[in-house]
Simulated scan of single mutants.
Amino acid sequence: MNENLFIGSSALAALAEIVRRPAISRVFVLFDINTARYCRPLLEKHLPEGYTPIEIPAGEEYKTLATCETVWTALTEAQADRHALLVNVGGGVVTDLGGFCAALYKRGIPFVQVPTTLLAQVDASVGGKTGVDFLGFKNQIGVFQEPLAVCIEPRFLQTLDPRQLKAGYAEVVKHWLIADAAAFARNRSIGIMLDDWTSTIQESVGLKQQIVRQDPLESGLRKLLNFGHTVGHALESYLLTQPGREILHGEAVAAGMICEAWLSHHKGLLSDTELDQIETFLFSIFEKVQFVTLETEAIAEYAQQDKKNSGSTINCTLLEGIGRGVYNQPVTLEEIAASLRYYHRL
Results as ranks from 00 to 15, higher is better:
residue 8 G to R: 13
residue 20 R to Y: 02
residue 22 P to T: 06
residue 33 I to P: 14
residue 35 T to Q: 15
residue 42 L to Q: 13
residue 47 L to A: 05
residue 52 T to I: 15
residue 55 E to G: 00
residue 60 E to A: 03
residue 60 E to F: 02
residue 63 K to F: 02
residue 65 L to K: 04
residue 66 A to K: 14
residue 67 T to D: 00
residue 72 W to M: 02
residue 82 R to M: 03
residue 86 L to W: 09
residue 86 L to Q: 06
residue 87 V to P: 04
residue 91 G to Q: 03
residue 91 G to W: 04
residue 93 V to N: 00
residue 93 V to H: 00
residue 94 V to Q: 03
residue 95 T to G: 14
residue 95 T to N: 03
residue 100 F to A: 09
residue 101 C to R: 05
residue 106 K to T: 11
residue 114 V to N: 08
residue 122 V to Y: 06
residue 127 G to Q: 10
residue 132 V to S: 05
residue 133 D to R: 00
residue 133 D to F: 00
residue 135 L to Q: 07
residue 135 L to H: 07
residue 137 F to T: 09
residue 148 L to T: 05
residue 152 I to C: 09
residue 153 E to P: 00
residue 159 T to R: 02
residue 164 Q to A: 10
residue 169 Y to S: 05
residue 173 V to I: 14
residue 180 D to Q: 12
residue 186 R to P: 12
residue 186 R to G: 01
residue 190 I to H: 13
residue 191 G to W: 01
residue 193 M to E: 13
residue 221 L to E: 10
residue 224 L to V: 12
residue 233 H to G: 11
residue 236 E to V: 13
residue 236 E to A: 11
residue 241 T to Y: 01
residue 247 I to P: 04
residue 251 E to F: 13
residue 264 S to L: 05
residue 266 H to M: 08
residue 268 G to D: 12
residue 269 L to S: 08
residue 270 L to Y: 14
residue 273 T to M: 09
residue 284 S to R: 11
residue 285 I to P: 11
residue 288 K to G: 04
residue 289 V to A: 06
residue 294 L to P: 02
residue 303 A to N: 03
residue 307 K to M: 10
residue 315 N to V: 00
residue 324 R to Y: 15
residue 328 N to C: 03
residue 333 L to S: 12
residue 336 I to D: 04
residue 338 A to E: 14
residue 339 S to V: 10
residue 340 L to D: 02
residue 346 L to W: 11
